[in-house]
Amino acid sequence: MKQMTLSALEQIMHTCAGDDESTDSFQQAPERPFADLGYDSLALLETQSVIRREYGVDLSEQALSEAETPQQLVDLVNRWLSAA
């Protein structure tokens, strides 16, 4: 079964934010809030749409707003994938 990893999420979010270099900060600090990582609500909305496209997971805005860290978002997507 396809699962999402922290580095896969980081890759998606780097693309969404338009970063020209990548780091592995999600793995180093999986519970650091998105706000501290510099991702705003628009970047999260964009991430939501990429996750829908690439993973077939349609997260509600409510669910999205409750996932405040990379680990929480990865867990949320993976719970969805496991249940599917």
Binding site: A17, D19, D20, E21, T23, S25, A35, D36, L37, G38, Y39, D40
Partner: peptide
């Protein structure tokens, strides 16, 4: 607010 520092966190120098 913190809208501008949030953007600034995307700078390579800050990351």
């Amino acid at each position: 607010g913190n809208g501008l520092t949030r953007i600034a966190r995307r700078l390579p120098q800050v990351r």
